[in-house]
Design a protein around this nucleic acid. Sequence first.
DNA 1: AATGATTTTTAGTTAAGGCTAAAAATGAGT
DNA 2: ACTCATTTTTAGCCTTAACTAAAAATCATT
Lengths: 231, 231
Amino acid sequence: MPTVSAENYLKAILHIQEEGQEKVSTTDLADRVSATPASTSAMLKKLGAKGWVVHERYHGVQLTDSGQRIAMDIVRRHRLWESFLVDHLGFDWDQVHDIAEELEHINSVELTNRLDAFLGFPKLDPHGDAIPGPNGRFRSVAARTLLSEAPRHLELIVVGVVDGRDAFLRHLGVLGISLGTRLTVIRRHAFDGSLEVRFADSGEDVQMLSPSVCERLWVDQDAEAPSIPFP
Amino acid sequence: MPTVSAENYLKAILHIQEEGQEKVSTTDLADRVSATPASTSAMLKKLGAKGWVVHERYHGVQLTDSGQRIAMDIVRRHRLWESFLVDHLGFDWDQVHDIAEELEHINSVELTNRLDAFLGFPKLDPHGDAIPGPNGRFRSVAARTLLSEAPRHLELIVVGVVDGRDAFLRHLGVLGISLGTRLTVIRRHAFDGSLEVRFADSGEDVQMLSPSVCERLWVDQDAEAPSIPFP
DNA sequence: AATGATTTTTAGTTAAGGCTAAAAATGAGT
DNA sequence: ACTCATTTTTAGCCTTAACTAAAAATCATT
């Protein structure tokens, strides 16, 4: 059973890995948990001793299977609570993070599963992030989602367009998007719904896509799933 | 802002005071929080420094107004969460204590008040204990409750009988109960619904009352309220 | 390949909150 | 009022998880 602090480190490692870094540096991790690199270094030793991470001195950490499982469970609880706070208590989606940050550490399988059922087994939280299921893996997203409604941090593949007009298709050409293009949503801007997207096949290029483009693209989960997250 | 541990001590002091002890001994408190008297003694020094308790060495602790306010807020959160777990997540009333014990430490006024509203501003939790309102005081109980449905730890006064047959009134005489008798529910036995009751005017005598008696007595809150809890 | 900058780890403190064992204060019974 | 049992406090130690400052390893550049 990890302490609250250990849970926060594990979760942070998962998130950094989700953003594309295979191995996580001590400094990046320290930044994420708002601690000094020295404190982080000490914590990594403990996490390694528990078998939750593999840490090669001076070369970065990675979650083990058991560490990833713990982290996914924390993310599951966090996103379920956020859904509860927004859908049932009437919070705005940008007010719930800090409270969910506390609720996520209450580790009761019974509680989590009952909450999940109460919410109707949601697939996405109020921020559009995928909610892991009771098995610690993301539930599969419905086939063919609009890019504008797809979860973040999941590798997607472009499978169709809503609007076949020449002008749109030419625009896609300019952006370097075609059927089969593999991409991942990094960030969703609340202001206008535009997305920051990373392209897997163009050197991990990051680009901003306007709402009008996102609403006209059908995407699906990439069948050749990436290591983390595995859907 | 108290730590989780400090909150547990404050809550324990409140509960012991509720059970009738004006001043709480270090040993009783230690028992309640499952710590040693030594650890408890150290904690009392800290609580005193924060102004949450008054502690006279070797003579017991009492909550200050600010300490009592903190403790009542914890009890409020505990009982609201218990209500949520039972009424909305389908837990049994005897499974929720430990989980509520964790949830109660999430101290967000916004969260607590929204939860309260979501639940419909309940007056009693699933165990029949009164739920403090947002002002840190118990909400007043509806005038004239059946003793069988009254909350625990609240000083009540007998104001009427449901059943005026001689046999019942004679039985009340034997038990020493009449109009105006002041009593407090100590414990409710789930098995058969019988109550353990303390009588204020007969030397704090404790007696067991059968369900058939409790269902035939109207009670009200004692107007000359006791110090804790004040309804 | 060497040097300088950066990153990471180690060493040594600190603060909470727990523990045991010993000392001190209280109180009960003669 | 004195003694003995009980209660409470003090003293000293442990663990967790933070911190700063210093040492060590890696990396980048020439």
